[in-house]
């Protein structure tokens, strides 16, 4: 059964416009020119309980707008949305009890006071029973290693520490769905991995459905079984990452290290990217060239020390997809 259903969601914004210059600014004092920007057009998809869905797309594609509509923050101009039986913007107050939200570029913690004070305020706002609060706080403290920073004022935390606290804050009230809008933005490698592991764990162990937007394809690779891609306000792709790989990722690279001086080999359909006496890098289409055959032919050039076959990074796949749809 689907937990989230969006049908034909559309949203446009009115944007005031004026050209540069003093005369234009004076003119804008009397006559405002507006353009209507269509942020979302006919967006429809469903999400099942327990899924992790990665929502990707270039800047300004409409990712955050979709998330905000699903959180009940924005009211769409067209379409219907049903999440756990609620219409987010109509049943907002009753609905938001069931969701947790992290907007990576904003903070929900009170800046001047220690983290634990913010958590206690959230406990009161959501009227979380003391037992459950205690249990969740202990679990989150342990999983996100917050013990040392709970008593520090938020303004003195590093970005990585703050993001861990933000995520903990969004889960104190046992939400069924977690919306993460760029949760790893600006984090270092260690914090990113900690955040990813945590998201995976709460999804697996507590069955929390996760919708996340990100620009970091490693997030998607590590987490999302399914990706939704949006560009210029329309949904362009809905499917798994491996499907995307098999569709666009047949191009592979092969790096060959030779033991002693070797001579370059020409194989039809294989392109040589670089060649030195010790190492050669080729690229080929794995649909058309058989890998065993290729290695056999390359070994004719000299004794092989090491062979490495690589897929192109997900980033490049996505870029290809963006290009194909001209977004």
């Amino acid at each position: 059964m689907s937990l989230i259903t969006l049908t034909g969601i559309g949203k446009s914004f009115k944007v005031a416009k004026r050209s540069a210059g003093f005369a234009e600014a004076v003119k804008a004092l009397f006559v405002r020119e507006h353009t209507i920007v269509e942020a979302l057009r006919d967006i429809s998809f469903t999400v099942r309980e327990g899924e992790i869905v990665g929502y990707i797309g270039p800047n300004g594609a409409g990712k955050s707008t979709t998330i905000k509509i699903m959180c009940g923050v924005l009211v769409p101009d067209a379409g219907a949305c049903s999440i756990m039986g609620f219409t987010p913007w109509k049943d907002r107050v009753r609905y938001v009890r069931h969701i947790g939200v992290v907007f990576g570029q904003r903070s929900q913690l009170w800046w001047d006071v220690p983290v634990i004070d913010s958590f206690e305020l959230l406990r009161d706002i959501y009227a979380i029973p003391p037992g459950i609060y205690r249990k969740n706080l202990d679990m989150l403290t342990e999983m996100l290693s917050l013990a040392d920073i709970l008593c520090t004022p938020v303004r003195q935390l590093s970005l990585g520490q703050r993001m861990r606290c933000e995520i903990a804050a969004s889960l104190l009230h046992d939400p069924a769905i977690l919306f993460l809008d760029e949760p790893t933005i600006g984090l270092d490698a260690e914090s990113k991995i900690a955040v990813r592991n945590f998201i995976r764990t709460i999804n697996r162990e507590r069955g929390v459905t996760v919708i996340l937007t990100t620009h970091d394809m490693h997030d998607i690779e590590a987490l999302a079984g399914r990706i939704l891609m949006i560009g210029k306000g329309t949904l362009l792709y809905d499917g798994s990452l491996s499907e995307l790989r098999s569709r666009y990722g047949t191009q592979k690279t092969i790096t060959v290290d030779y033991k002693a001086g070797a001579s370059p080999i020409d194989v039809p359909g294989v392109q040589c990217l670089s060649w030195s006496s010790g190492r050669a890098v080729y690229t080929f289409d794995s649909d058309r060239i058989d890998i065993t055959d290729l290695i056999n032919r390359l070994s004719a050039g000299g004794e092989l020390a090491d062979v490495e076959i690589g897929s192109p990074p997900v980033d490049e796949l996505i870029l290809q997809l963006y290009k194909e749809h001209r977004v």
Binding site: K68, C71, G72, V73, R94, V96, V101, R106, Q108
Partner: peptide
Amino acid sequence: NIAYELCRP
């Protein structure tokens, strides 16, 4: 930040 304000019950 009104976005967070509206995410509260």
